[in-house]
Design a binder for these strands. Sequence first.
DNA 1: TCAATTTACTTGTCTAAACAAGTGTGCTAT
DNA 2: ATAGCACACTTGTTTAGACAAGTAAATTGA
Lengths: 242, 242
Amino acid sequence: MDTTVKYLNIAQDLTDKIKHDLYPTGTLLPSEADLTKLYGTSRATIRKALTELTNNGLIQKIKGKGSVVLNTARFTFPISGITTFSELNESQQMHATTKVLTLAEGSLPQDIIDQTQVKDPRVTFVQRLRTINEEPIVVDEDYILKSVVPNIPEKVAEHSLYRYFEETLDLEIAYATKTITVEPVSDKMCQFLGLGATNNLAVVVRSLTYLNDTTFFQYTVSRHRPDRFKFVDFARRHHHGQ
Amino acid sequence: MDTTVKYLNIAQDLTDKIKHDLYPTGTLLPSEADLTKLYGTSRATIRKALTELTNNGLIQKIKGKGSVVLNTARFTFPISGITTFSELNESQQMHATTKVLTLAEGSLPQDIIDQTQVKDPRVTFVQRLRTINEEPIVVDEDYILKSVVPNIPEKVAEHSLYRYFEETLDLEIAYATKTITVEPVSDKMCQFLGLGATNNLAVVVRSLTYLNDTTFFQYTVSRHRPDRFKFVDFARRHHHGQ
DNA sequence: TCAATTTACTTGTCTAAACAAGTGTGCTAT
DNA sequence: ATAGCACACTTGTTTAGACAAGTAAATTGA
């Protein structure tokens, strides 16, 4: 929490104050000059903090006017960015469970080997069923490179892979590429998800996850019940000028 | 194109060079010091340009090493951010058409009035069917506030709304919130999308779009054929530290 | 030979300062 | 009264410099 990095601390502090309605939606934040005095820092540092808030969709800066606090109420379900099931579960108040269906050694699917040019395709394969309020929501299949994570204890699979990666192994997860499609799934998958016979479609989210040093280390296929799937995104318009 | 803003020009130049393989995937960009000399500018400006590339998923910066060019080949279909059908159509090479099904005046749906607190709910309603290679792909329904855009010529609806907003009306589109869900749709919608009787599910993307001064001005509901829908995203991991 | 240290180079953070440009208020001259 | 202007305040861009901290290769010492 004490990041020792000023601009992140300031960004966190401003974020907290916005969430606690100390800076209400629709009002202006103090000007950069005022914030500079308030936090006893330089304007460049304040601006770096405000850039964070802008990227997170918390404020909109207007030249000549100031920083408007945006309505963040609709954003209580932020699945954009890389957020995990456990983190989602903790931020919301829900009765969620994770059941490990499979935990085994195996190899990365061939198309992913081709895509990532990985040398050593040995992986730990984890298949898990996630439920919320006793209702099946999603089946996650993770392929985790053994060259990066040699083994995964069963207890870890039952809880949070990411916490194990980041807190125990000190891996620095940096970025991921995701695709979302809708596809028919196998009968067994329909059973897991509790899908009726009339409809065998699931929402499939495929992720390739990379570490800070750009090494690929995890491939995930998540199959969601279509009637329980919701993806929320905040997007800024980049000026697509010629 | 000549933005007169240095860091954006540099970012565009570096982006072009990466796309043309002048800086190949997996190699390092010149160091910030070298780029400073190359472009005859300050390091802060170079760093602002590199931040753009980082946000766009083109490079990964590694402290002490440099900026690694990422494999952008898989990203030829970037629907993340706010990108429109027309822009997509032009960047890819496809035979796409737009057919205007409805162009009328109306009112914003009540739930959106509540969500946005808009005072004047009068809108122009545009319903359009998009096809690619003679195949129906998506039906877009746009509700555009008359208080911001008084009227929309039919010819504009046939081509690009955004080009009209940005280039003709000089509106500055800033950000949008999106949700993606999967929902059953009406029989008529099934007809438009060419969906068989066995399956009446469509991928529904709802967007609330805002201008630079935070005024809400457009609500869009897009219903996609599930078997033709693909959403691609690049996401960075924010450190969810305590 | 090999481990430890130094050194050079890299990115990350922070500061202070200047000017450009957009917004809004209020005064002034007509 | 009102149109126009000046002024104060806002964010946006750019510069130059300093130090911290991570990486990797070269050097040194045992």
